Amino acid sequence: MKKSRSKTIRIQLPDGDPRGIKIAEVKNRIVQAFLIPRSLLKDVKDKNEVKSVSLYFLFGSNDKDTRTEAYIGEAEVGYERLKHHNANKDFWEVAVLVVTNTLQNGFNKADVKYLEHLAYNKAVEAGRYAINQTIPNKPSMRESEKDDLEDIFETISLLLGTLGYPIFDGYRVEQEEDAIEDKEEELLFCTRNDTDAFGKYTGEGFIVYKGSKLSSNSDSPGFKPYLPKHNEKIQRFIADGILTEEEGRYIFLKDHPFGSPSAASQFVVQNKSNGKRDWKDKHGRTLDELMNL
């Protein structure tokens, strides 16, 4: 695996509030990202940078409550497009507006259309956020121009991740996904009843990996009070392409995060569960034991 090079990222807080507007840029790169909470949209209206040709992202909660929802777009005047979405789109809470930081190297319409198309495809491929929009058109351009924009895209991806929105990052790198056997030292398994689930405890919570199978039984008396909401979540996951049903078993079609090990284990076991006891490594050590090594 290629080792990532060190990066210096500058984040400015115009109002000195870490929960407010942020402006992020990588040293010696031409793009910068404005993170704008929806409630503070008017506070950037006088900044020249947000009046230029822009790529933008909207982030918020969706009614399925399965993944954060995102919308990707482009605009000739970034701030005006965000004003339009403020009046017409309900779901979003935060916008990230990507612009250039020099007048000489500003984006043109074709640039942001290409970046929009690329960003949409990369976000759908990663599967981390729910993307509900039409597929953006891909403009034609010279290969040299595409190469420059794809280099810029890498910087955009880095800035978004730094600002807390890793929309282009899957939960696993490709090498890990293709070689589960080589990563078993890091994996945790849940086999209670006939559950056949595996995943990883990370800083984002517990990630249940695709291919995991739920228990075939959810009839435990102690679980009955939780069953209606549990079944609703299963149907939402199926609608969102996270789960499918095969031969009477629910199977994960993609990696999915849960807020805690217990939330993950209770879902896959379809029963009350303590995740620190029910998730075990290949040697049979519980997550609780591993956390106290």
Rank of each mutant, 00 (worst) to 15 (best):
L287W: 00
G170W: 00
L149E: 06
F206H: 00
L13N: 09
D196E: 13
G203R: 04
T68F: 12
I251Y: 05
K272N: 06
P166Q: 02
Y201V: 03
I36K: 10
P37E: 05
I180Y: 03
N274T: 04
K22A: 10
I23S: 03
L293F: 05
K45T: 15
K210D: 08
D17K: 08
G199P: 01
E150L: 09
V173W: 03
S61Q: 15
L160H: 11
L188V: 04
K51Q: 14
V269H: 02
T100D: 02
V44D: 08
A110T: 10
R192C: 01
L13K: 04
D281G: 08
E143I: 08
S140R: 13
K200Y: 07
K210L: 09
E143F: 12
S273D: 00
N105T: 13
G78Q: 13
I152E: 02
A179C: 08
L253R: 06
H230T: 02
E125V: 10
S157L: 07
W279K: 00
L160E: 04
E25S: 15
G127M: 04
K276A: 07
L293G: 11
K27D: 06
K89Q: 11
Q133I: 14
E25I: 12
K122W: 05
S144H: 09
I167P: 04
V124A: 05
D15Q: 15
E232D: 14
L158I: 13
K122Y: 12
N28I: 04
G161I: 01
T68A: 14
F223C: 00
K233V: 02
K83E: 15
D182A: 03
V269L: 10
L118K: 14
T66E: 09
E186M: 01
P221K: 02
T286S: 11
K47V: 14
A263Q: 06
I152N: 04
D219F: 04
V112C: 07
N137Q: 15
G211P: 00
L97W: 15
S6A: 11
R5P: 05
Y114W: 08
G20E: 04
N121P: 04
T162V: 10
M141P: 07
R128T: 06
T244R: 12
L158D: 09
D219H: 07
L158P: 00
V99Q: 15
T286E: 00
I238D: 09
